[in-house]
Design a protein around this nucleic acid. Structure first.
Lengths: 344, 344
DNA sequence: TTGTAAGCGTTATCAG
DNA sequence: CTGATAACGCTTACAA
């Protein structure tokens, strides 16, 4: 058996309360006593039992990260890796810890979350969209479970905490750039319509058209799965039409790979025949032969901020913590965009 | 505050021991009493406190998954996602839980592991190669910390538990196939030499040459980072030589993408001018225009088996659990291999 | 500055 | 079958 606080106390010739004070760096302990205790701790190779501590302080320094995970949805994986690794790194310095959860077979998420929280397995949750729907969120709120969403929640309530990239702005920047370059017929290869991301991208694109006083009828849109295959097929379909668009704005850089595959097949070239900007860059773009023009936002920030928020929320439950943050994205010029050949 | 076992006991009019029996499905409880207790549990929305339980049973049903993580090493990410998601899925059905750890800044892994275990934050560890070196492993063994390695450990000791793909066999299959197709000059685009994977691939390749009675001098090898860039550069370098190989055997399918990029650049085509087989398929191959010929092994199995092993080890600490498993890989024919144009 | 006593919410032991 | 009573290892009053 490993040694306990009692063993240390006995060896150091003090009470266990004094040992507790020392390991928690509380003041009011005579320096000599501290040394004595530390010596005993080192001698016994004592490590405070986190389980017992959690029971005593009635706090669980564990954050659950929930991500809907489907091996086929490769884009998610990139996001998944980045977010989880970032949170891990952040918590490594604190004594918090990350627990991973992916979609169970049944979809009753809020029940699962409530169970985890009630059983004191997690002190709070970081949820990624679209792992939760509005009812789940309402249930979590009702159950007073601390949580934060990465992404924009479907509901606009001030009690709902989240961090997201300002995707409206991102799409606005992308489309604005295309319009500046003389493109008029722009096609949005957008995320599945169930995602708030898709709604935001549409909104930003429309804003850009409106601001430029362009007829919004020229803006076309397709909702596709975030997979190479559906991007490829969608591109072939769109480009086979008579009045094909001269520019694509995509929800993800994996889609750009699909577009590239399609243009290669059709003997078209980027950016000469077709301009492309991606609203999100997940890492796929490195596989392109040319640098991608895209809208940059820090996913690391998403992870760090959510991790920090949960840490504060759990550590200081008496305070009301709030966060409704939209990170500002930025246009990064690459080589997949060009002035339109013949402006309409 | 949420309700405790005492509240349930009081409401059901029994002792808390009886409640404990009911929630743990122990026999020797009168059916009527069970019903009474269950009613109380439902009424109070009672959830047993896992922290208190762990303290009482002195067992931590938490497994730490440690992966060295570097955003640049993209290959790892694919592996990372697959393994962690698989383990999560497996544990979701049990009441075990996965805690994620990625490389901290300092490299003193065994210290970290010992701390986590002593502090009862984890009941055991799943380690992925090459997150640990031989000294770390010896320290874990000495400290009697339950752990299992995904990958082949550098040391051959029967106390060290692991699951791995039989990469010797995998490389053997790949090279054997190339030899059958008439290739003689084969180049191994191998993993970094620090990885046991690299050693195994080399070994399997040599076995295939030996068995075919081919001069091993025709087998060349390069150790490269598992990144697109280094694969691209290595390929350009290898193909610029006078007696260029007619076939590549790679440690990963991301490397194949690098080869493809290089052959595109050199106006060579796969498989006409160059045959390629990958010893590992992580998911990148979907981005190729043709199906990849590769050696298949189930990463899901790696995750499930290690998860299961740790579960048993933690749940039944009295027994000695052992696992030294090498999964058998299999050749999957795709379109990146052809009979050599002019056999030497 | 230090020690004592009383929890935290379970499970284990042993008697009934 | 059921119920006291004592752990489990730590923290938090409160007392000295």
């Amino acid at each position: 058996m490993s040694s306990t606080i009692n063993d240390v106390a006995k060896l150091a010739g003090v009470s266990r309360q004094t040992v507790s004070r020392v390991i928690n760096n509380l003041p009011l302990v005579k320096p000599e006593t501290v040394l004595e205790v530390q010596k005993a701790i080192a001698l016994l190779d004592y490590h405070p039992n986190a389980v017992a501590r959690n029971l005593a302080i009635k706090t669980v320094k564990t954050v659950g990260l929930f991500m809907p995970f489907d091996v086929e949805q490769v884009r998610q994986n990139m996001f998944f890796s980045t977010i989880s690794a970032t949170i891990c790194h952040y918590y490594a310095k604190q004594d918090f810890v990350l627990q991973l959860f992916t979609s169970p077979d049944d979809r009753n998420y809020s029940e699962l979350f409530k169970k985890l929280y009630r059983e004191k397995r997690v002190g709070g949750l970081i949820l990624t969209c679209p792992s939760v729907n509005n009812e789940d969120v309402m249930e979590l709120l009702a159950a007073k479970i601390p949580f934060v969403i990465i992404g924009r929640p479907g509901l606009e309530l001030e009690q709902i905490n989240y961090v997201d990239v300002d995707n409206v702005k991102a799409a606005y920047l992308a489309v604005q750039r295309m319009l500046e370059l003389g493109h008029r017929k722009i096609c949005l290869l957008n995320a599945p319509s169930s995602m708030t991301l898709a709604v935001d991208i549409r909104k930003g694109a429309e804003e850009a058209y409106r601001e430029a006083n362009m007829p919004i009828g020229n803006l076309s849109e397709m909702h596709i799965d975030l997979t190479l295959k559906s991007a490829y097929e969608a591109t072939l379909h769109v480009l086979s039409k008579d009045d094909r668009p001269t520019a694509f704005v995509t929800a993800d850089d994996l889609i750009v790979l699909g577009i590239k595959k399609a243009t290669d097949h059709l003997n078209l070239s980027i950016p000469t025949d077709l301009s492309v900007i991606s609203v999100i860059k997940n890492g796929w773009a490195d596989l392109l032969p040319m640098p991608l023009t895209y809208i940059d936002a820090s996913f690391e920030d998403l992870g760090t901020r959510s991790a920090q928020f949960m840490l504060k929320t759990i550590s200081e439950p008496e305070k009301k913590h709030m966060m409704q943050k939209k990170l500002k994205p930025e246009l990064i010029l690459g080589g997949t965009c060009a002035r339109v050949a013949m402006p309409v």
